[in-house]
C-alpha cells in the first residue's frame, strides 16, 4: 500500500521529468544546459545555495548550542520561532525582504547611498532569502543530538581546565559533525528548488540574478518544455545526490 502510494505520488512524476529531459538525447540535454542563460542560472543557483549553506551551518549550529545549553528568558519562545520559516509562504518571505531592504526602505536606501550596496534585485538578496527559508534545517538537525549528548566528557574537560571554546571545539563539536553536515545538505537541497521568495527578491535578470527555478518557469511559459525539463533534470539529479549522501550520513551516525 505504502509502496503503491510512493510510486504514484513520487516515482512516476519524477520519472516523467527525467524522461522529458532526455527526450532529445544526451546531446540535446547538454545543449539545453550549456546555453549561456541556462548555464548562468544553474551556477548562480549553486553558488548562492553554497554561500547560504556555509553561513547557515555556522549560525545554525551556534543557535542550536545556545538554545540547548543556556537558560534565559524567552528561550522557549525563541525555540518556537525557529520553525516559523517553514510555515510562512516563501512568497511572503520575498515580499518582506523587499519591504525591508528595497530601495525605498530606510535600510535599503541607506545601504545604497552609503555603500552603493544593492541587496534586493541582486544575488545578495537571493542568499538572504535562502538563509531565512532554510534557517530551521541545521538548528533542528543539531538540537536533538546536542540534547542527548553525554555531558560527562565536557565536565571532565572543564575540570582539567579547558576553556569553554576549547571544550566546544575539541569535545562537543566532533559529536555534532554528522548532524551539522546533514543539516547543511538538507538546506542546500531545499535552496536549489526555491522559487516563491526568489522570484520576488532576485530581480530575475538573465545572466545576472535569474536562478534555475525562475529560468525553468520562463521556459515552461514560452513553450520550451525541453529546456525546462533539462534544467529540472539537472536540479533533480543534484538533489537526489544530496539526499543519498544524507542517507549515508544517517547510517554512519547510527552505526557510530
Amino acid at each position: 500500500m505504502a509502496l503503491i502510494y510512493l510510486t504514484v505520488m513520487l516515482i512516476v512524476p519524477l520519472g516523467v521529468i527525467a524522461q522529458d529531459g532526455l527526450r532529445a538525447g544526451l546531446g540535446g540535454l547538454w545543449h539545453a544546459i550549456t546555453l549561456p542563460v541556462a548555464w548562468h542560472a544553474l551556477t548562480l543557483t549553486l553558488w548562492t545555495a553554497a554561500v547560504m549553506s556555509i553561513l547557515n551551518t555556522v549560525m545554525g549550529t551556534l543557535t542550536a548550542y545556545v538554545l540547548v545549553r543556556y537558560t534565559f528568558v524567552g528561550r522557549d519562545l525563541l525555540n518556537a520561532i525557529v520553525d516559523l520559516p517553514l510555515a510562512i509562504p516563501t512568497l511572503v518571505t520575498g515580499v518582506m525582504l523587499v519591504v525591508l531592504y528595497g530601495p525605498q526602505s530606510v535600510l535599503g536606501g541607506w545601504l545604497k547611498q552609503t555603500w552603493d550596496l544593492r541587496i534586493v534585485f541582486a544575488p545578495p538578496g537571493i542568499v538572504l532569502a535562502l538563509l531565512f527559508i532554510t534557517f530551521p534545517f541545521v538548528v533542528r538537525a543539531v538540537q536533538p543530538v546536542l540534547l542527548n549528548l553525554d555531558r560527562d566528557q565536557e565536565e571532565a574537560a572543564a575540570t582539567l581546565g579547558a576553556s569553554s571554546w576549547t571544550i566546544f571545539r575539541r569535545v562537543t563539536f566532533p559529536e555534532l559533525i554528522l548532524p551539522v553536515i546533514s543539516g547543511a545538505l538538507l538546506s542546500f537541497a531545499r535552496a536549489i528548488g526555491e522559487f516563491g521568495a526568489i522570484v520576488i527578491v532576485a530581480g530575475n535578470l538573465p545572466m545576472f540574478s535569474q536562478t534555475a527555478a525562475v529560468y525553468v518557469l520562463g521556459e515552461v511559459e514560452s513553450e520550451n518544455r525541453l529546456a525546462a525539463s533539462a534544467i529540472s533534470l539537472v536540479m533533480l539529479t543534484l538533489a537526489f545526490g544530496l539526499v543519498l549522501s544524507m542517507d549515508w550520513l544517517h547510517k554512519r551516525q547510527q552505526g557510530h
Partner: peptide, 17 residues
C-alpha cells in the same frame, strides 16, 4: 528588475522600485 508579468511589474513600480 524583470518581473513575471505586467501586473507584477507595475506593482513593483508602485512600491517605489
Amino acid at each position: 528588475v524583470m518581473d513575471k508579468g505586467a501586473r507584477e511589474s507595475i506593482t513593483n513600480f508602485e512600491k517605489g522600485v
